[in-house]
Design a protein around this nucleic acid. Structure first.
Length: 269
DNA sequence: ATGGTGGACGCTCCA
């Protein structure tokens, strides 16, 4: 029995509700993790999801910025604590426990929206870049500490394209926030602390070019194809063993009023 | 070297 998890930075769940519904009809995932919902919890379009058979919703949102939500067909347990990164109070993380058929232990599914980090890759001149690196350091602490005995899955917009095959031009992006060596190294410490497997790369090995995001500031995203792989799905090796396929839905970048990110799906079993 | 677009909010910030 297959079980699928989708992650998507939706850039306003209320504005994008039609394309979210389209995705649910198309893929019917068991679990959908959204980032950048930009929606306070009491204004989340809960009824629209319930009407589509997604009756179980946990969210952690705020007015105007950030916000994550995890939506499922079957019941799950939401962890009551969110990581309060850097004491900013930003809604950038939530975690939920799910039972996946064929797996003996429940998984702990982390839904992340890592800070973008501003324009300049300098921690002195740019406090947002400093915040991004500190946020990642706190992730490393948590995966080496409180979550170390869990079967973790990490999904979300991590706002870093780690490999040279995750960007349209490695050379031209080395000094661009999202692909700088210090970000890649800091993210790699998170990855190693959790003992993770990159499920997307397990399915599409290097050197295949993979992108999940194309800027809005481009005349024709498809022709110029200057993308970056900012969205990720990682898991504990015991979970990775059950991976059967991964899909990156690039065509969603061309949908009506698109997000600048596209959905990624991992299928288990 | 610069600007390009888009969303939320409310006369501006963030990506």
């Amino acid at each position: 029995m297959a079980f699928s998890i989708v992650t998507w930075n939706i850039n306003s769940v209320r504005l994008r509700l039609p394309i979210v519904q389209h995705l649910l009809e198309m893929w019917q995932p068991d679990v959908l993790c959204l980032q950048e919902t930009k929606c306070p919890d009491d204004q989340f379009p809960t009824a629209a999801f319930k009407k589509m058979g997604y009756e179980h919703i946990a969210m952690h949102g705020q007015k105007g910025y950030h916000g994550v939500a995890t939506i499922a067909k079957e019941p799950f347990a939401a962890e009551s604590e969110w990581l309060e990164f850097c004491d900013m109070g930003d809604t950038r993380h939530m975690s939920t426990r799910h039972t996946i058929p064929g797996m003996s232990d429940p998984v702990l599914l982390h839904n992340f929206y890592v800070p973008a980090g501003g324009d300049e890759p300098d921690i002195v001149k740019n406090p947002k870049f400093d915040h991004k690196l500190k946020f990642l350091d706190e992730m490393t602490d948590h995966f080496g500490g409180r979550f170390k005995d869990d079967k973790n899955i990490v999904v979300g917009d991590l706002n870093i394209a780690p490999s040279e095959n995750d960007v349209w031009s490695h050379k031209q992006l080395l000094k661009v926030v999202s692909h700088t060596p210090v970000e890649v190294e800091t993210l790699d410490r998170v990855f190693k602390a959790g003992g993770f497997v990159d499920l997307v790369r397990q399915n599409f090995p290097e050197p295949e070019l993979l992108y999940s995001w194309w800027s809005y500031r481009s005349r024709d995203w498809q022709t110029s194809n200057r993308g970056r792989r900012l969205d990720h799905i990682w898991s504990h090796p015991d979970v990775a063993k059950h991976l059967s396929s991964v899909d990156i839905l690039s065509e969603a970048r061309g949908w009506e009023k698109p997000s600048d990110h596209v959905p990624i799906r991992a299928v288990f079993g």
